[in-house]
Design a protein around this nucleic acid. Structure first.
Lengths: 103, 103
DNA sequence: ATCGTACTACGAAGATCGTCGAACTTCGAC
DNA sequence: GTCGAAGTTCGACGATCTTCGTAGTACGAT
């Protein structure tokens, strides 16, 4: 099994402004909600989204570079998962607060 | 003393997406931080910001329409305050989490 | 080695956003 | 009533962002 981590910021490098900017977009919020239900992460392609694959990849990149999620490769698939521990440490309550809205 | 409230969404009308979008901007985050230190609100003009008055008015409007802050008129001045209770009720921990980052 | 799958990288097009200056409103003071 | 101060509204311009299609990479299976 191949396992390569993708470039992402260390916990110390994560900035609120970037995180909020990343979360303030409908599609990305949808991704976050899907990931919140899968503690071990899910394959990017399995998230139902109203956009094409390339747009999906773009949003996943934004979220990863903001430090919101982490992605590793498993064969040809990419598994993404929320960086819940890091976010909860840096901004206690933020993630919970956002997910509580659940529409 | 003149006291007129400015148009803002009811608590039920506040949407996470809009709130996050409003908070994901450096200048607006700066405004929020300034307001967090003033429970009773402060005059918009007294917040130090690296933008002109018209831009400041624009950002305050975005924040107010998102439901993040409330503004009322006192003479020629406008006093803004965080809608902390509403936000804490809707998204418990969100505001605290964001403010915990403090820079 | 070849094929199909899963995904990314690269422009490009269109929409949205942040910023400003100028004009206008509203209020208090003189 | 006239003036100045505080703030808003109205375009406008430039920058950023979302979206897409196409081309390309990496891997597993045959």
């Amino acid at each position: 099994m191949t396992r390569k981590p993708l470039p992402q910021p260390e916990r110390e490098e994560i900035r609120v402004e970037t995180v909020l900017q990343a979360l303030g977009e409908p599609v990305r919020l949808q991704i976050i909600r899907a990931l919140a239900d899968a503690p071990d992460g899910i394959a990017c392609g399995e998230i139902e989204l109203p956009v094409t694959a390339s747009t999906r990849a773009h949003h996943l990149r934004i979220l990863r570079e903001a430090g919101v999620l982490t992605t590793h490769t498993e064969g040809t698939r990419r598994i993404s998962a929320l960086r819940r521990e890091d976010l909860d440490t840096l901004y206690p309550g933020l993630l919970t607060g956002i997910l509580a809205a659940r529409q």
